[in-house]
Design a protein around this nucleic acid. Structure first.
Lengths: 341, 341
DNA sequence: GCTCAACGGTTAAACGTATAAGCATGACCC
DNA sequence: GGGTCATGCTTATACGTTTAACCGTTGAGC
């Protein structure tokens, strides 16, 4: 039993007694061509009867446009990426575009993704912040091929595509200064795994942390700089270890998304009070920060609305047919900081 | 400045001094055609020089296969869907398929999605559990068109596609019985918004809850049956309201994914002890259940591995060219229940 | 009666790839 | 030296749309 053949525009044309061109004009509802209601109805009725829908591949080939965008993220299920994904989906849907999501979490996935994009699988690309393993080289090649791209990054990126920046360094610095100013003397850092690799799009939070230490004359202690806090469970264990160490820190800067929440769980389970015993500083607009007592403050990155701004930027580029060679720098991210300690 | 023209196989052929057919054979590495290494290298070198990549639309049109699958979910950012999405992405990547995700959260999005699938935008479809607004009618039409589909559902679905079931009713019943058995007398229900609509794919958890009440001779009290707990903040407020009411429940069955976590926050902020003052029963394999003290127990749905099983089922169908008319029922979901109270 | 434009279509040529079928070329055998 | 047969290509067609260009009618205007 082989797959049933889909009806084509030719079938519809035959049934309605017109040519395929007419079918196309009717299906696309083109107002510049004048088609009498009688013919139009006949075509539509035939299409309905056959359950005809224009083949997407053929249309894309002819129109040289897939009406899909590609969203490149580092993983699924972490709030920062999820929020971005949700917003992109909304905007894309409004613009009549589909979203094909690809997860880049290894070097060869990165390479494969670049290959796919070269195949013109999408009309535009949004690259989430902190996606690891994407090399300047491969991204540059895509940019040169004229593919509209928006990359969200805080660090240096090659020329040739739009960049959306969140000047997090300043916000992190301010928040860390506040911690020190309120008497914290031993601040731990919980970061992402890939921050410790050499990804060109890696986070700048670690740098901000180290700079803050130096600024306040505090010495760097690698015992309280931990990685691998990407998922909740790992972060919980990392925080527990930090809080049970003999020389317990009096503050934790959780640079990983969910890390701050896990740290709060860990503190509770270690019978410590937040923020009296230990202050927790998180990153990202964690929904939890809205429901916990004022014990959790977060810094950067974007509020929800701004993500849709990113998507809008891309769709504008696509619509204009501009290959986004502007290297335009917008700064729509806002700081989500609340009173620390 | 219009978009640069992508190189085609014709360009490569010209540069390498061969025909387009040869280019195609080389690019696809077809072993059934014998191509001497010398020619092959010349073609590959030409392709490299031009940064050629075969156009996906043209290939799809010719091969009658998009090498994409469509994942239909109800929303983004809730653990159940995220876990599914992550697993599907892994499996799809292994199989060389792309994933186009579509979020169905309104009737017209549902309709639009069905339309897209008719356009053969994907070679197969996975429909997540509890996606609302998808009518039997439209799904049936797709099934009849021969599109491989796997729908995860606990309730009745029309004939014509594969169904993956999680007999949650039994698990819910068992967990609720346990709550009653340990002395709970007033059990609240926090559910999804769309459970209270008439979606054919809606959850059966509410039914299980109501049945349990009846079974134990407890009367239904709509004051402690609340909806709108889909997101964390709403769930927190709903739980807070429940816990501050004069006639406070001694247990909460949180049928919505994250609801249980929010309920724990709410209990803590209301100075209540879990599970002494109030027991919390959650749904889904919440990562948090691994890091909290044994105060949170969850019931159903699938463990991570089983989601990949669902994806594998779909890819098998696609590979076999079988339009999944088996109405095959597998039951790979397992119960993730831990000691209650 | 002639021109001209509007009307309501149709014809045909792409879009870029895949692949069945064909066709030289030379080796090899009798 | 004519037939057979692999070898290594090329030619040509199809995939299903879209869309520019074209083409008979018809009716109005002069």
């Amino acid at each position: 039993m082989t797959r049933a053949k889909q009806p084509t525009s030719r079938d519809v044309a035959a049934l309605a007694g017109v040519s395929v061109a007419t079918v196309s004009y009717v299906m696309n509802g083109r107002t510049d061509r004048r088609i009498p209601a009688e013919t139009r109805d006949r075509v539509l009725e035939a299409a309905r009867q056959l359950a005809y829908a224009p083949n997407r591949s053929a249309r894309s080939l002819r129109r040289r446009r897939t009406e899909q965008v590609c969203l490149v993220v580092g993983s699924i299920g972490v709030p920062a990426y999820d929020q971005l994904a949700a917003d992109v989906h909304v905007r894309a849907d409004e613009a009549g575009y589909g979203v094909i999501t690809v997860v880049v979490d290894s070097p060869d996935r990165a390479e494969k993704t670049v290959g796919l994009l070269h195949q013109r699988i999408a009309d535009g690309v949004i690259i989430a912040p902190d996606v690891p393993y994407l090399t300047e080289n491969s991204l540059g090649g895509l940019a040169r091929s004229g593919l509209p791209m928006v990359v969200m990054s805080n660090t240096a990126v090659p020329d040739g595509f739009d960049v959306v920046r969140a000047p997090e360094t300043a916000a992190c610095a301010e928040a860390l200064d506040h911690l020190v100013g309120s008497g914290r003397r031993r601040i731990a850092y919980m970061g992402h795994e890939h921050e410790f690799s050499d990804s060109p799009l890696s986070s700048e939070r670690l740098a901000a942390y180290l700079a803050a230490l130096e600024r306040h004359g505090m010495s760097r202690d690698d015992d309280i700089i931990v990685s691998g806090a990407d998922d909740r469970v790992a972060a919980y264990h990392a925080a527990t270890a930090l809080l049970n160490a003999p020389d317990r820190p009096d503050a934790i800067f959780a640079a990983s998304g969910r890390g701050a929440i896990s740290a709060i769980w860990a503190a509770r389970d270690a019978s410590l009070t937040v923020p009296d015993d230990v202050a927790i500083l998180g990153c990202g607009n964690l929904p939890e920060s809205l429901i916990t007592q004022p014990t959790l403050s977060t810094v950067g990155p974007p509020a929800a609305d701004d993500f849709t701004e990113v998507a809008r930027l891309l769709f504008d580029r696509i619509a204009a047919g501009v290959p986004s060679k502007g290297h335009e720098v917008t700064e729509p991210w806002i700081y989500n900081r609340r009173a620390s300690t």
